[in-house]
Write a protein that binds this DNA or RNA. Sequence first.
DNA 1: GCCAACGTTGGC
DNA 2: GCCAACGTTGGC
Length: 170
Amino acid sequence: MAKAKAKTSAAGLWLMKSEPEVFSIADLERDGTTTWEGVRNYTARNFMRDGMKLGDLVLYYHSNAAPSGIAGLARVSGLAEPDPTQFDPGSDYHDPGSSESDPRWLMVRLGFVERFSSLLSLDQLKSEAALSGMPLLQRGQRLSVQPVSAAHFAHVLGLASARTPLPSVT
DNA sequence: GCCAACGTTGGC
DNA sequence: GCCAACGTTGGC
């Protein structure tokens, strides 16, 4: 699996899901930064490993929430590296099939950028025609790390800034 | 808690 | 390599 031939200088744009009960945008705001351990899906891992660059912007999505939706913005502040929880027998994320000499799972580090003044709920996102092609909104899609097009990303930021004193993300 | 959709595993 | 069984995700 080798892709990424078409290179642009533009920063990558992503969406990452977290259950707010586990780690919410408020937790990220409090801590400033966090490592994104626990990804156990190869497609998601590959996006982190092959796609993510320092400074890439990330829409922070709350899943399994009431309601679910996009809660804020983060930024990639550390490139993919081995996720230590895969080696920890006491961790929910332990993977006995992985070894320190050949780690199977990776994590990136995220830094807090902004918490939206109110959540952009899944219902609202679905009501936006401009977002109809977003992977997040496709039926049955469950990837916890996914790329976002520049147009979709800009539209989401527009929705957020419509309800909050303009955050400027540069 | 239900369950549809999807990913992974493993027998063959 | 097929595919059934199983496990997980995540909306509802």
